[in-house]
């Protein structure tokens, strides 16, 4: 892994963080994908060396600051996401594309569900429709990633 590739991977995470606070036009806004989750899943699959748990926690913490969610919420969920994706990595990369997609969706569901659950305890819960929407749009992104940028 070259130095440039490492930089590129972290720039990807930064871009995902920025994208999560850029307000999309009204209609798209409800379908805002969980950018950080998509980027982290991608990172685990494409460059597992860079997808460290500490990196995920730091990115999640930054996301908490940016988004205004309780501090630690996304740090926790992003860490769990990278842990799950890292443990399932072998299975994911050796699966056929459709199974790959479903495994990625499974991980993202766990991420969003955990965020909703813990967020609910700390008085920060989105609507279920919003979670479903972001899951679907995240799925579309993952699908595109798997179709065009072969892992």
């Amino acid at each position: 892994m070259t130095e440039g590739a490492v930089m590129r991977n972290y720039a990807l995470l930064g871009a995902a963080l920025l994208m999560s606070v850029v307000p999309l036009p009204q209609l798209l806004g409800l379908w805002q994908p969980p950018w950080l989750a998509v980027a982290l899943i991608w990172l685990v699959l494409a460059a597992p060396e860079d997808a460290r748990l500490t990196v995920a926690a730091a990115a999640g913490l930054l996301q908490d600051l940016l988004v205004g969610s309780p501090l630690g919420l996304h740090a926790l969920t992003a860490t769990v996401l990278v842990f799950l994706a890292g443990n399932m990595r072998q299975r994911i990369v050796t699966s056929p594309p459709w199974l790959r997609f479903f495994l990625a969706m499974l991980i993202m569901t766990a991420y969003l569900g955990l965020a909703a659950l813990i967020g609910g305890w700390f008085d920060y819960a989105g609507s279920w429709a919003g979670i479903a929407n972001s899951l679907m749009s995240g799925g579309v992104l993952i699908l595109i990633a798997f179709l065009f940028l072969k892992v």
């Binding site: 500490t54 309780p70 860490t79 700390f122």
Partner: peptide, 13 residues
């Protein structure tokens, strides 16, 4: 990390 984050959540709340 999960425990630390959760601790942070509790402390902030």
């Amino acid at each position: 990390i999960c425990l630390l984050s959760f601790g942070l959540l509790v402390v902030e709340a």
